[in-house]
């Protein structure tokens, strides 16, 4: 049993995109704020702080997580994956990210990180989704710029590419 006192900053250790990192948080500090302002991972955005818009979605221990509805204290010791961990290299985008760029699946890009995290998580577990499934998944995200269709297109194309590259790997 661990009890953290209010108004005091406590050390929080997490694995962020595979790297062990640490910061400090009061019990009331939200994971979204901890990621952004303590760990400097500003790619995760805050859009509503009541769990509706989905911009702050990250993956915690394999679970899609609204980081605005999660306390930093809750994830002490957990593995966190954010948009900063998606690209294979600093100068190269992953398959999903490339598909987003090709399809103009983002405009302002503010909501995009959360959408990418949901898709990255989902496609890893559901390699051959149909459009309705992607629409159901992404109904937990709000985007005001794109009208969503290019996002759906990018997701489906990325899924197809990921599936074929996986197939090539297993064939070889």
């Amino acid at each position: 049993m661990t009890r953290l006192k209010s108004d005091v900053r406590h050390p929080i250790h997490v694995s962020l995109n595979g790297e062990p990192v640490a910061g400090e948080a009061e019990p009331r500090t939200l994971l979204s704020d901890f990621l952004r302002h303590q760990l400097g991972a500003t790619g995760t955005h805050v859009g509503c702080e009541h769990g509706v818009c989905g911009a702050c979605t990250v993956v915690v221990d394999g679970m899609l997580t609204r980081s605005c509805l999660t306390l930093a204290a809750q994830v002490d010791g957990c593995e966190i994956k954010t948009v900063e961990g998606l690209a294979p290299a600093a100068d190269r985008l992953g398959v999903l990210q490339q598909a987003f760029r090709r399809h103009h699946a983002l405009q302002c890009g503010f909501c995009t990180a959360g959408i990418l995290m949901s898709l990255d998580h989902y496609l890893a577990r559901n390699p051959a989704p149909i459009e309705a499934e992607i629409r159901d998944l992404l109904s937990g995200h709000l985007c005001r710029c794109t009208g969503y269709t290019p996002i759906i297109q990018a997701a489906l194309e990325a899924a197809a590419q990921l599936a074929s590259s996986k197939k090539e790997t297993s064939d070889a």
């Binding site: 049993m1 009890r3 953290l4 006192k5 209010s6 019990p27 009331r28 009541h50």
Partner: peptide
């Protein structure tokens, strides 16, 4: 839009709760 201050207790057992 930040939460008010509170203590946080991470329970390990039902007894803690």
């Amino acid at each position: 839009m930040k939460p008010p201050a509170f203590d946080y207790l991470r329970a390990e057992t039902v007894g803690d709760v």
